[in-house]
Simulated scan of single mutants.
Amino acid sequence: MITKRSSGEKWFDAGNVTFLFILSCVTLYPFLYVLIASFSDPAWIVKTRGLILWPQGFTLDTYKLVFQNPSILTGYINSIILVVAGTSLNILMTSLGAYALSRQNVMWKNPIMFGIVFTMFFNGGLIPTFLLVNDIGLLNSRLALILPVAMSAYNLIIMRTAFMGVPVSLEESAKLDGANDFTVLFRIVLPLSLPVVAVMILFYGVAHWNAWFNALIYIRARDLYPLQLILREILITNSTDSMMTGVGGGDKMPVGETIKYATIIVATIPVLCLYPMLQKYFVKGVMIGAIKG
């Protein structure tokens, strides 16, 4: 039976849609501004004030300058290595911990969980962490950006909650057939928990891709800088001179501005490409941790 909607409900829906549309435009426009500016004539961008809705003097010169900069390419390679290696280790460690803490016959499970949750509120701090990383010989290496963040307590709780939703009867049947805990985890539990695994890949991958602070603290060699640290250097310290070789003196300033925009787009595109691939799992994976205790 279809219930006729009142005029008040229709007006409410119309107002709600209008408000959300305006909010979406306000949220999306800064990214569109950067995208449009990166393809526009640098001199026009410097002179223009206010909204811009399409490129003026369309050019790809700034992107050519960005990709000709060896620091950008090196940063890209370093970031990809960190994302692949770091996310793989994160998923492995988180799934192992979540599986162990989601089983019913594990001793000291509650005290261990309390200790893990405790780290979400209290930690050693920056200086003790730096001293630890230095003492174990990880300073100025990629491992310094991977091992200290090998597991997130928040993500562990989400994955543990998802694993607790897998029927115990499946585990019991597998063990009757001779399967051990590793077989149960990798051939039964993880395939049945693909939504939450996809969300963990997204969370960890984006965190590694956007990370720059740990690299700023632990990395000294420029050839190990991730892309975000290069981007920070460009945006904050105005270090665009190395990309403007051959550009006339009067043109350096406007070209430097559009180089910043182009670098932001180059650093953002991989994350934007990752989201659509995992979107269908995202809501379900997040809600698993929200509706179950």
Results as ranks from 00 to 15, higher is better:
Thr94Tyr: 01
Ile112Pro: 01
Thr263Asn: 00
Gly165Tyr: 06
Lys109Met: 10
Ser40Trp: 01
Asp223Trp: 03
Lys260Trp: 01
Asp177His: 10
Ile158Leu: 15
Gly124Glu: 06
Lys64Arg: 13
Gly86Cys: 07
Phe58Val: 14
Trp108Ala: 13
Ala43Phe: 11
Pro191Val: 12
Ser38Arg: 02
Val197Trp: 05
Leu53Ala: 11
Phe203Ser: 01
Val117Leu: 14
Asp223Arg: 04
Phe12Met: 14
Ile22Cys: 14
Ile259Cys: 00
Ala100Phe: 09
Val255Phe: 03
Glu257Ser: 05
Met243Glu: 03
Leu278Arg: 08
Leu192His: 09
Ser141Asp: 03
Gly205Pro: 02
Ile146Phe: 12
Arg222Ala: 09
Leu23Phe: 14
Val266Met: 04
Leu132Arg: 13
Tyr281Cys: 06
Leu231Asn: 00
Phe114Pro: 04
Ile22His: 08
Asn123His: 13
Ser88Tyr: 10
Ala198Arg: 06
Met113Leu: 15
Val26Glu: 08
Gly137Glu: 06
Leu60Cys: 09
Gly248Val: 06
Ile265Lys: 03
Ile188Tyr: 12
Ser95Met: 04
Pro111Asn: 12
Asn210Arg: 11
Met277Thr: 10
Asp13Asn: 08
Ile201Glu: 02
Ser242Thr: 15
Ser95Leu: 00
Glu171Met: 09
Cys25Ile: 14
Met277Leu: 15
Ser7Ala: 14
Arg5Asp: 07
Lys109Trp: 06
Asn123Gly: 15
Val84Lys: 11
Val168Ala: 13
Met159Glu: 04
Pro226Leu: 03
Ile259Asp: 00
Pro128Asp: 12
Asn214Pro: 08
Tyr225Thr: 00
Phe31His: 12
Ile146Val: 15
Gly115Lys: 09
Ser152Pro: 06
Leu202Val: 13
Tyr281Gln: 10
Arg187Pro: 02
Ser38Glu: 01
Met1Ser: 13
Gly165Val: 03
Glu171Ser: 11
Arg160Glu: 02
Ile77Thr: 12
Phe203Trp: 10
Arg160Gln: 07
Val84Met: 14
Lys4Leu: 12
Val266Pro: 02
Asp177Ala: 06
Trp54Thr: 05
Leu23Ala: 15
Ile230Gly: 00
Ile80Ser: 09
Thr161Tyr: 04
Leu176Phe: 10
Asp135Asn: 15
Asp177Val: 06
Thr3Pro: 04
